[in-house]
């Protein structure tokens, strides 16, 4: 479980995060949503320790990250898997080498053990034949799946995904969403997804945190987001005519 308390972050005079308090639960897909410029990416980078924040605290399973020693921080970080928006695969390595990388860095496994684990996770993301391909030879969807495989290969306790569906066609996007949810359930990890894809919100949003202007404007789940009267949320989520109709139908069906 990840708990965030009164998080503030500024860049010069620009106050980006203005006191966010929330928690992300274990075994659930937690979504951070909001308009561009609402502070989603800054929030995620603070959670990952890539940005230092001025005020507040972030704790991983009760351990306040900023109070940890460097070795303890490294320990926490080795339990984090991250899927970047652009996949961030190492382009000098093959797909199998990319996936094996966290094992080589953080474990003392033999080469055959590492190879078995790589085979297993690549199979898990349906990439059995891609071991020797370079990232540049893989499609966007394949690269995302490789990034997920690399993120989960070392059995992380926390999985972060920054807009995992961006640049993907709707069918592949659903495959990626479902894969993330299955992995979260299967390994009981705390998954935090930064997204503005409304399909993801409706499909896998077991917990949803809505950010607006650096503040938490709303918190709920994919079920409660249909019923909320919060105008800020409804203006954003149901901005398209299609989603307005879907919401209307959902409410009528459940009355």
């Amino acid at each position: 479980m990840i708990e965030v308390n009164d998080l503030h972050k500024s860049f010069g005079d620009a106050h980006i995060l203005k006191g966010i308090t929330t928690s992300f639960e274990k075994g659930k897909t937690n979504l951070i949503i909001g308009q561009s410029g609402s502070g989603k990416t800054v929030f995620l980078k603070c959670l990952l320790g890539l940005f230092e924040y001025e005020q507040g605290s972030i704790s991983y399973d009760g351990k306040v990250f900023s109070n940890l020693s460097n070795d303890e921080k490294t320990e926490v970080r080795s339990q984090i898997g991250m899927v970047f928006q652009g996949s961030a695969l190492f382009d000098s390595m093959t797909i199998a080498e990319n996936v094996m990388f966290p094992l080589r860095m953080f474990t003392k496994q033999s080469k055959s053990e590492m190879q078995d684990r790589v085979d297993f996770v690549l199979n898990r993301v349906n990439l059995d034949d891609a071991h020797h391909k370079m990232p540049s030879e893989a499609s966007g969807g394949m690269q995302k799946r490789v990034a997920i495989a690399r993120a989960i290969v070392n059995k992380p306790k926390y999985l972060f995904c920054d807009e995992p569906n961006s640049g993907l066609d709707p069918k592949t996007a659903i495959v990626i969403d479902n894969l993330i949810q299955e992995i979260t359930d299967e390994y009981q990890i705390t998954t935090v997804i930064n997204s503005h894809d409304m399909n993801s919100v409706m499909e896998i949003g077991e917990k949803i945190v809505f950010l607006k202007d650096g503040l938490k404007a709303w918190e709920g789940s994919k079920e409660t987001i249909f019923k909320t009267d919060n105008e800020v949320v409804t203006d954003f989520v149901y901005s398209s005519e299609l989603f307005k109709k879907v919401r209307k139908m959902y409410i009528e069906e459940n009355q």
């Binding site: 320790g49 890539l50 961030a88």
Partner: peptide, 17 residues
């Protein structure tokens, strides 16, 4: 620089490297 632009350096830092 390309590793920085494509977030590969961020990926290393997130892993604690």
């Amino acid at each position: 620089g390309t590793m920085r632009v494509t977030e590969q350096i961020d990926a290393l830092e997130v892993m604690g490297i």
